[in-house]
């Protein structure tokens, strides 16, 4: 989860990804790219989380309940 949010820091070095929306929003004083970036980031984190839980279920079928963290 926190990995996805830390990746956005790379925007400070000019590497393009979702975090670039933050630097853009800061430079232009615009809310739209900023909020878009945050929402997309959280969505991406949730999707990854779901993916890992699904993969966990797939790989350990003998477990009745998946452990949620």
């Amino acid at each position: 989860m926190s990995n996805v949010s830390i990746v956005t820091m790379a925007a400070l070095l000019g590497i393009p990804q979702l975090g670039s929306l933050f630097t853009q929003g800061f430079q232009l004083r615009l809310f739209v790219p900023l909020v878009t970036g945050i929402v997309l980031c959280v969505v991406l984190a949730v999707v990854f989380d779901g993916l890992i839980i699904w993969l966990n279920k797939l790989l350990t079928p003998w477990r009745q309940r998946t452990v949620t963290s």
Binding site: S5, M9, G19, F22, G25, G37, I38
Partner: peptide
């Protein structure tokens, strides 16, 4: 607490600043 971890710090920083 889990949701907070997914929030990007940099985005939050800029948003709060604005």
């Amino acid at each position: 607490a889990n949701a907070l971890r997914a929030l990007p710090s940099l985005g939050l920083l800029v948003l709060l600043f604005l």
